[in-house]
Computed example of a mutant assay.
Amino acid sequence: MMRDVVVAAALLFAATSVVLAEPDLGNWRVDTGRDGQVTASLHASNKLLTGGGALGYSPVLTLVCRPDGEPRWSEWLQLNDAVSASRKITISVVVDGGKTDESWSVGPRGRTLVRDGDDGIKRLASANRLTLSWRFGLLSGRGEADFVLAGLAEAISQIAASCKTDPP
Rank of each mutant, 00 (worst) to 15 (best):
M1T: 06
M2F: 08
V5Y: 12
A8W: 05
A10I: 09
A10V: 07
L11R: 14
L11M: 15
F13I: 09
A14V: 08
A15C: 05
T16I: 06
A21H: 10
E22A: 10
E22R: 15
D24K: 15
D24I: 08
L25H: 15
G26W: 14
N27S: 12
W28Y: 15
R29Y: 13
R29E: 07
T32G: 03
R34K: 09
S45C: 01
N46V: 05
T50G: 07
G52V: 04
A54I: 04
G56R: 08
G56Q: 13
Y57N: 05
P59I: 04
P59N: 06
V60I: 03
L63I: 15
V64T: 14
C65L: 11
R66T: 12
P67A: 13
G69N: 10
E70P: 00
R72D: 01
S74I: 00
W76N: 11
L77A: 02
Q78A: 04
N80Q: 07
V93K: 13
V93D: 11
V94A: 02
V95C: 03
T100N: 08
T100E: 09
D101A: 09
S105F: 07
R109V: 03
R111M: 11
R115C: 00
R115V: 01
G117H: 11
D118G: 13
K122L: 07
K122P: 01
S126N: 09
A127E: 01
N128Y: 03
R129N: 03
G137W: 05
G137C: 06
L138C: 00
S140M: 11
A145D: 08
F147Q: 07
F147D: 01
F147V: 06
L149I: 01
L149K: 03
G151N: 05
G151H: 06
E154K: 12
A155W: 13
I156L: 06
I159M: 10
A160M: 10
A161L: 05
T165M: 12
D166R: 11
P167L: 10
P168C: 12
